[in-house]
Nucleic acid binder design. Structure first.
Lengths: 192, 192
DNA sequence: GTCTATAGATAGATAGAC
DNA sequence: GTCTATCTATCTATAGAC
């Protein structure tokens, strides 16, 4: 409709890349538009040409993660409730962290991002869906704590210096093992 | 020595309490001295009378946690290296989180605090001590991931909404169970 | 698409009166 | 110990030239 076909050229992607790097290092609140512009060798005004507000920029940075979560949640909710669906969600989250190691860390940690996610789609509806899938219908305290630890551990693993040396495949394998262990999920038949 | 006996009166404690609440809700970077002063019904200048800089205030807020970590690390390092020492450190950390539920969340998450801890004592020397005790001499990837998940899970549990309803004792029990599970530590004989 | 320039708000921090 | 007042720097955001 009113949306011009190609508002997202090369410039837009460059801004998103620089913003992600700086968000991961300094947090969203600790990153100014001046810092982003400086990293690109341009001025703030050039960044504002691509994104009308900082909020819009943050949401654009987070968007690939939201898309991927939506995709695997749609798929997981296709199978009946139970351990299989739970495992599918866990695998989806671990895939996500492996694909976007620095990006996922932006989600947790900064309360400003948390507020953004509580007020904007797709996060507003996505967050409860994921929580519900992991917790089940009537979670006991043990399950609540396990889910909390998995969420925190997955999201912060992208910026944990101790894990920086691990390659994606190793990180994926060990995160999945730990998450399944916490949830009491058996390793599937095909795994080593 | 040169330290006057009572620089820390009631006013100082009030500032620390308000700062902690706001740090836990908005993060350190997201909390201004104006917000702290407003919560106390005073002006910024009154806060600056108690703490010369924001950095000094943040370090003062974190101090009780540093003291407690120092104490249990000193005790744990008294016993020989091995599963017993490891378990002692884990118990110390879980105790800590239960004692200072909101406070521990300030430690992780905000990169500004991370930088502060890398440059100021006791954190500068304390952080590697804890990491070394949890990781052991030659940690494999599995151990690294488990330790990372424990660290993230413990520290963020204080602000996780899903856990807000749990009382301290329940939180303590379940965090300890999960942490031991991840590390392959057997529950001690006396536990239920 | 990028720039200069600037507005308006707010940050951390200080000076000095009471 | 708290205040008013102020400084300086930086923040988000906008206007308008090139």
């Amino acid at each position: 409709m009113a949306r011009p076909v190609a508002p997202r050229g090369r410039g837009r992607e460059r801004v998103l890349g620089a913003a992600l790097s700086l968000f991961a290092e300094h947090g969203v609140s600790g990153t100014s538009l001046h810092m982003i512009a400086e990293a690109l060798g341009v001025t703030k005004a050039a960044v504002y040409h691509q994104f009308r507000t900082k909020e819009e920029l943050v949401l654009a940075v987070l968007r690939p993660v939201g898309d991927e979560i939506t995709a695997f949640m749609d798929a997981a909710e296709g199978c009946p409730d139970g351990p299989e669906r739970l495992d599918a969600v866990v695998v989806g989250l671990v895939d996500l962290v492996s694909h976007h190691r620095r990006l996922t860390a932006v989600l947790r940690g900064d309360p400003a991002v948390g507020r953004l996610m509580r007020t904007h789609e797709p996060w507003r509806s996505l967050t409860p869906r994921v929580a519900r899938a992991l917790l089940g219908a009537a979670p006991d305290p043990a399950r609540r704590v396990a889910v909390s630890m998995i969420g925190a551990g997955l999201m912060l693993s992208g910026v944990e210096p101790q894990l920086a040396g691990l390659d994606d495949a190793t990180l994926h394998r060990e995160l999945l093992r730990s998450a399944r262990l916490l949830l009491g999920l058996p390793a599937p038949a095909g795994s080593a």
